[in-house]
């Protein structure tokens, strides 16, 4: 085997290995910050975001319209501030209602947009005012059990 052909193959091999490593750290890991396509920013404040994670989808009528880009804690008001990147093709009225929903019983959480009737649309950087926090399953269950228990005592 010719020395330069051999070098070429080894170079190709090492390059492929580095591409694979890069793919793993950028695409599979958390180093990635880029989102494809043009987007605009919206913010929403929640009392409780439950298990919402960055890069979780934003859905309206079940269609993905954007992604969560950032979640941070507002230490002044003790609430969570969620930043979202919304696809520029979609505009939403100013009275849109953002809720944190769960896909399936134990599935992942996403933000759902319920569209209102305001003629004015959100602009980039706006904050959604009407939000509903995540439903925490444990709370729901304990509430349910408490109600049942109190029902029981009332009957007696």
């Amino acid at each position: 085997m010719n020395r330069s052909t051999l070098d070429l193959w080894v170079g190709f091999f090492v390059a492929a290995g580095i591409v694979a490593l890069g793919f793993l750290s950028l695409k599979v890991g958390t180093m990635d910050t880029t989102t494809a396509g043009a987007t605009y920013q919206l913010q929403a404040k929640f009392d409780n975001i439950g298990g919402l994670k960055p890069r979780a989808p934003i859905k309206s009528a079940g269609v993905v319209v954007g992604r969560v880009t950032d979640i941070r804690f507002d230490s002044k008001d003790y609430i969570a501030v969620v930043t979202m990147a919304i696809d520029s093709r979609y505009q939403f009225p100013r009275d849109t209602f953002a809720t944190i929903n769960t896909s399936g019983m134990l599935g992942d959480q996403y933000i759902g947009f319920e569209v209102g009737g305001d003629p004015e649309m959100f602009k980039s950087g706006d904050t959604i005012k009407k939000t509903q926090s995540a439903v925490v399953l444990e709370k729901l269950i304990s509430q349910f059990m408490f109600n049942k228990a109190s029902e029981g005592t009332e009957k007696k």
Binding site: K27, V28, G29, T30, K53, R55, A56, V64
Partner: peptide, 24 residues
């Protein structure tokens, strides 16, 4: 499976130092 969910879930749970570096 939704493409975004597939990648976003992955990226949310795979840690570069914890998982990838340890694998290497």
């Amino acid at each position: 499976v939704d493409s975004g969910t597939f990648w976003s879930q992955m990226q949310a749970s795979v840690d570069v130092r914890e998982d990838i570096v340890n694998g290497v």
